[in-house]
C-alpha cells in the first residue's frame, strides 16, 4: 500500500517536472527576441484601442465600486467615495502601456482612513486586472487636509509593498476588498 502511494507520488512529481519543463521551454523561446518588435504583430487601429480603453475603464470601476468602507457598513460607491468619472485610462501608444488614474473623495476632509482606502483600491485593482497597467491613485483635489502627504504615500510602491507585509494592516485591507457572495 505504502509502496503504491509513494510510486504514485513519484509519478506525479515526474509529470509536474515535465510540464514545468515544457512551459519553461515555451516561455524561453518566446522571450528570446524581446527587444525587437515582433514582425507579425498587427498594429491595432485607433478605434480598437479606444474601445479597449473604454472597456478597461468600466472594468476598473466595477472592481473598485464594491470595496467596503473600513468602518461603515457600506461600499465606496454607496458613500460616493469613488465614482465613474473618477477613473481615467490613458493609453500611451508609443509605450504600449495603459496608465490608470483613479481619483477618490474621502467622506470628510480629515478622514483618518483615507490612506487605507487608497491602499485597498490599489491592491484590489492590481489583483483583479490582467492587463499590465500603471496605476496612479489620488485624492480629489481639495478634499483632504493632508492630500499631498497621502497621495505620496499611496503611490510609493515600496511603502505599499511593506504595508501589505504588515499582518494587521493586511487583514484590514483584505476585509475591505473581500467580495460578498
Amino acid at each position: 500500500m505504502i509502496l503504491t502511494i509513494s510510486s504514485l507520488l513519484m509519478m506525479f512529481a515526474n509529470l509536474m517536472q515535465q510540464t514545468k519543463k515544457i512551459i519553461q521551454e515555451k516561455y524561453l523561446k518566446n522571450d528570446s527576441g524581446n527587444t525587437t518588435a515582433n514582425p507579425i504583430a498587427i498594429e491595432a487601429t485607433d478605434e480598437q484601442l479606444d474601445e479597449k480603453t473604454h472597456e478597461l475603464k468600466d472594468q476598473i470601476y466595477d472592481i473598485i465600486r464594491t470595496i467596503k468602507d473600513p468602518e461603515k457598513p457600506a461600499t465606496l460607491e454607496d458613500l460616493s467615495v469613488v465614482y465613474e468619472n473618477g477613473v481615467e485610462v490613458i493609453n500611451q501608444r508609443n509605450l504600449k502601456l495603459y496608465t490608470v488614474r483613479i481619483e477618490f473623495n474621502p467622506t470628510v476632509p480629515h478622514c483618518s482612513l483615507a490612506t487605507l482606502i487608497g491602499l485597498s483600491i490599489r491592491i484590489k485593482v492590481i489583483r483583479s486586472i490582467l492587463e499590465n497597467v500603471k496605476l496612479d491613485i489620488y485624492i480629489k483635489e481639495g478634499a483632504h487636509t493632508t492630500e499631498e502627504e497621502i497621495n505620496k504615500q499611496i503611490n510609493d510602491k515600496e511603502r505599499v509593498a511593506a504595508a501589505m507585509e504588515n499582518p494587521s494592516l493586511r487583514d484590514v485591507v483584505e476585509k475591505c476588498i473581500k467580495e460578498e457572495e
Binding site: 519553461q24 516561455y27 524561453l28 522571450d31 524581446n34 527587444t35 509593498a161
Partner: peptide, 15 residues
C-alpha cells in the same frame, strides 16, 4: 545598442 544576453528565472514576485 543594449542587447539582452540572458534572462534569469527563479524568483517569484518582485525582484
Amino acid at each position: 545598442k543594449l542587447k539582452t544576453i540572458c534572462s534569469l528565472k527563479g524568483h517569484s514576485g518582485i525582484v
